[in-house]
């Protein structure tokens, strides 16, 4: 009987080995393991065996069943896998076709620059101060040491509304308003971003409406060397750690001493290129020590306090940063232009 069982095992395994579809596999399962199958048929003869032989044959019978079942199962797994594989193959998509995107708009490039600058200065302990775009002559000029008929008023052509009201030509009036609000408290550490207006015919480099960011620091012992240190830190965060600054003496009525600030050309890194007219430097800032008259008008005793101020044009920085060729793009609201900045 044992031989019979062994022969059955051999035959069944041989048969199963060659099976290639589920149907055939099921047929063979029935054939060998079914209620009327070959294995059951053989084991029916167990009753004729001796008590000693019976468990031995029983064990062999179980082994044969186990072996056949194991093979069937593994075959089944293999078939299933193959089938799944086939189905997944059929479900494949063309991954090169475009997907449905999340909606994504963009911040205006000028506001992108403003936010970036604000974040740098907030990190340096500054607050953001804002003020009206329609200003009085007093805040826009007089309190900034530009009395009526001062020749330096030539430098800026102003949109007047009445004799006393005008579109601010700079965000510096916010400095005076802040000083008044602080009522002599120190330290003052603010930057003032905002729109300003000057009578300029629009062309590639001029716009009658533009944005400025000015900064003001007042304290008990603020030095010109602190101004240099502050600006250096700012430009290195804004334009990269290798950026250097160079100060050139200049004139603003509200600061003394005054300086224009050049930074290492953002394009060539200072080697000289077309953008920097081969000088390696780009002029981006004006600055200086707050004029004692301005401190006084803002309610600070110039013998006790000193301060520095600086200002920059947002458009100019955006133009340099992104390599833009025409300032008018900022205000044309052309989607083709704006979309280029709709990213990090």
């Amino acid at each position: 009987m044992k031989e019979k069982l062994e022969a059955l095992r051999q035959e069944a395994l041989d048969q199963l080995q060659g099976v290639e579809d589920v149907q055939k596999l099921n047929d063979l399962r029935v054939k060998y393991l079914g209620k009327k199958g070959a294995l059951t048929e053989i084991l029916r003869g167990m009753g004729a065996l001796s008590a000693e032989e019976r468990p031995v044959i029983g064990q062999v019978g179980n082994e044969v069943r186990g072996a056949i079942e194991a093979l069937i199962e593994s075959k089944q797994d293999a078939f299933q896998k193959a089938e799944t594989e086939q189905r997944l193959q059929a479900e494949k998509v063309d991954v090169t076709l475009p997907g449905r995107k999340m909606a994504q708009g963009g911040v205006h490039p000028l506001n992108k620059v403003i936010e970036e600058i604000e974040e740098i200065f907030i990190g340096m302990g500054y607050h953001i101060a804002e003020g009206p775009e329609v200003e009085t002559d007093y805040y826009n000029f007089e309190a900034l040491n530009l009395p009526k008929n001062h020749p330096a008023r030539d430098m800026q052509d102003t949109f007047y509304i009445t004799e006393e009201l005008l579109m601010r030509t700079q965000t510096s009036p916010v400095q005076i308003r802040t000083m008044e609000k602080m009522e002599g408290e120190v330290p003052v550490k603010i930057i003032c971003p905002g729109k300003v207006y000057r009578r300029d015919d629009d062309d590639a480099t001029h716009s009658f409406q533009f944005n400025q960011i000015e900064g003001l620091v007042i304290g008990e012992n603020i030095r010109m060397s602190d101004l240099k240190g502050t600006l250096l830190q700012f430009v290195q965060e804004m334009f990269g750690p290798n950026t250097q600054i160079r100060l050139r003496p200049s004139f603003f009525p509200f600061t003394e001493p005054s300086a224009e600030v050049d930074v290492t050309c953002v394009k060539c890194g200072g080697n000289g290129c077309r953008m920097c007219k081969q000088t390696g430097w780009l002029e981006i800032l004006g600055c200086g020590m707050v004029h004692p008259k301005v401190l006084e008008m803002g309610g600070y005793d110039p013998e006790k306090y000193s301060g520095f101020a600086f200002g920059m044009g947002v458009e100019r920085i955006a133009i340099l940063k992104y390599g833009i060729d025409d300032i008018r793009h900022f205000y044309s609201s052309d989607l083709a232009f704006l979309k280029q900045f709709a990213r990090m």
Binding site: M102, A103, G105, H108, Y331, L338, A342
Partner: peptide, 10 residues
């Protein structure tokens, strides 16, 4: 902007 709107300045 994250909802798909583009900012402009006029």
């Amino acid at each position: 902007t994250h909802g798909g709107w583009q900012e402009v300045i006029s």
